[in-house]
Every structure is written in C-alpha cells, then in structure tokens.
C-alpha cells in the first residue's frame, strides 16, 4: 500500500480488554451507539493479568502506534487480584518502553467497568487523539513487517 503523505494519519491501535468488565463496557458503548474511531481493535482476554508484556512488545514490533489495556476497577477484578498484578507489570513495562523511546502516551492502562460504556468510548476517543498527536511509531518497529 503506497503511503500518501496528504492522507490523514490513521494509527493502528490495539486494545486488550478483560472479559468481565472492559469487554462488556465496550459492548455497552456499542449498544449505546457511542462512537469512537475505527482505528481501535479489541482483543479479548480473560483478565488484564493475562496480558503478557510480550504481547505489547509484539504489537509495537508489528507496527502498532498505541496499545491500551483495560481491566476491571481495582478491587472489582472478577478474579479478585488480577488487575493488581497487571497494574504493576504495566507500570514497569511502560517506563521501560518510554526509556527506549516508545513515549508514555502510546501506552495506557484504564479501568472500565461493564457499566461504563461512556467511559470506554471517551477513553478511546482521547487515546486515538493522543496517538495522532504523537504520530507514527518508529521505535521498535520491525521494518521487515512493513509492507
């Protein structure tokens, strides 16, 4: 696909959503017809604690411009403690990513409950705006993966 310089930059964004809260929150955003850009693609995981830092590195390596991870609110994890582990892991990972040049703004953790369709859509709108302002992610990208 030839890159047209004049075309609006459309980022690639991966959103990991836990099955119990955030995925349901995204469903609620859908059934309430709350729009957010099509750049966001959701991957369902059982719990935010299932998100291996490796998945996020892989996404950046394959050309993602932003990765967001959503889970149940602290204290509300379906598995009681999963999101606490996730939060700690992501804090570490994101600062390491920032250190190697993947800006903090490209990664985000957000707690979205099954009742927070509005928050889900608002978060995605905000996140896409942020990524657009940061532009294309060049760090970590494996050139062999680009077409």
């Amino acid at each position: 696909m030839p890159m047209n310089d004049n075309a609006e930059f459309r980022p690639k964004i991966v959103a990991f959503c836990c099955n119990w809260c955030s995925y349901a929150g995204a469903d609620l955003a859908g059934s309430s017809r709350l729009t957010y850009p099509a750049d966001v693609k959701i991957i369902k995981v059982p719990c935010s604690c299932r998100v291996n830092p490796m998945f996020i590195l892989r996404a950046f390596e394959k050309g993602a411009d932003g990765v967001i991870m959503c889970g149940c609110h602290p204290g509300d994890c379906h598995y009681s403690t999963g999101n606490y582990y996730a939060r700690r892991r992501m804090t570490l990972l994101f600062s390491m990513l920032d250190y190697i040049g993947v800006e903090h703004g490209r990664t985000r953790v957000e707690w979205v409950s099954a009742a927070e369709g509005v928050k889900f859509s608002a978060t995605m709108n905000e996140f896409v705006e942020k990524i657009k302002s940061l532009g294309k992610n060049v760090r970590l990208g494996d050139l062999r993966c680009r077409s």
């Binding site: 690639k12 991966v14 693609k41 991957i43 995981v45 059982p46 299932r50 291996n52 490796m54 998945f55 892989r58 996404a59 394959k62 050309g63 993602a64 993966c145």
Partner: peptide, 19 residues
C-alpha cells in the same frame, strides 16, 4: 500457558490486527 487464550493465539491476533 492458558488453553483457549494461549500465547500463540493472542500473538496471532495481535499480528493480524497490526498487519
């Protein structure tokens, strides 16, 4: 690894989305 949500499965999804 988690059956039904294995490392390879999730990475395959990531790859497909970022392709």
């Amino acid at each position: 690894d988690l059956q039904g949500f294995s490392n390879r499965q999730i990475i395959a999804e990531v790859d497909a989305i970022c392709r």
